[in-house]
Design a protein around this nucleic acid. Sequence first.
DNA 1: TCTGGGGTCCTAGGACCC
DNA 2: TCTGGGGTCCTAGGACCC
Length: 421
Amino acid sequence: MIALADCNSFFASVEKVFHAGLKGKPVCVLSSNDGNIVAMTTEVKAFGIKRGTPYFEVKDILERNHAAVFSSNMMLYAAMSRRVQSIMRQSVSHTEPYSIDEQFLYLDGYEKHHDPVGLMKDMVRKIALWTDIPVSVGIASTKTLAKVANKYAKKYKGYGSVCMIGNEEQRRKALAGFELSDIWGIGASSLARLISSGVTTALEFADKPGDWVHRHFHKPGYQTWLELNGHPCIDTSEILKRQTITTSRSFSKMISSKEDLKASVATFAASCCNKLRAQDSASGCVCVFAGSNRFREDLPQYSNFASARLCTPSADTVEITKTAMDLVDEIYRPGILYKKSGVILSDISSGCSHHLLFDPMEKREARIELSRTMDKLNQRYGLNALSLAITGCPDAAWKVRKDFPTPNYLTDIEQLMTVEL
DNA sequence: TCTGGGGTCCTAGGACCC
DNA sequence: TCTGGGGTCCTAGGACCC
């Protein structure tokens, strides 16, 4: 059996841990630039607000209902995620992190000595006690069915946070009452095609002939179908090292000068390189993209990208930034108001330093050492203590807007919570 | 006024090879 | 007028996820 443990309204739950008096209150967390709602508690869902809704559209409803609103603090959520996942690892030896708030737990071998539901309930209690984060668990024979069980655990209080699909009868009953659109692996496109074929519930999909599913929905849809019928085939392991690394942002204000666009791209390139070195890798291909505001139909629209190969894989911030600056020269058009830019590193390989005969770059080893030293200083003195001059001033107009910031309670000694008695 | 960010996998089709 | 077959690799774009 496989369990899927998923933190309830994770970002909002983390904020609730550090802000007293929010128990049972509506709480939501916004995306970068406070643009959209990315996480919310059930109290906010009750207002009919959907994940991804632009904040300005629902600001009035939230204010009227005295909802607590926070800008997202990914550093804080990542730190809390590490704590929760480590408690899960203490409970079950074979685990697989899937996302910042989800982990698969392999229960094989535990059935003999423990009742799996009881084992998971103990774990949920321990996480609540040690971190104050609410977790729901679904247990079934495949990952897709565990996701289904997880939804039930979240939806109905009676399960006590843990729901198991343990036999054929439970499987059919669970699928019969399950929305097609809630199935893991069925997106908007597949949903529309299924509905037009007359399929309306998860059970009807699972009961379709396999070759029909394969013909219309190819491999991914067929795998989902197999899993719903109890045959495990989805592999989520081996995602520890990223194959591409992206940093991109929308700007809080639109920009038009090449200098500003370069400053933004240089900032994102440095961030990409930092992530690259953190996983001890190097990249062989740099891509830069930029675009106008797609919501402003009254303005000229433009978006473009360009990429370049490096002569040898690199994790050197200076080299990768220089390459990115050349790419900005390629795609920049004057007279455009830019709203977004980004950097994508791909062709990623292990190890930071590579040797090359006739390397045009002098002292490659020393340069990677320089980048590593910058990482150490930034780790010690703050995220942007040291950066390349081309990234511009720290309070440039395009930088992210955060109207409701929260401190890094778990990762910065200067920002620890203080409690007055 | 204000509209997120970071990923993965699969497939079809083109380029190229022998 | 007639114009191979089989294979690999790469890439762009679609679909999906959190």
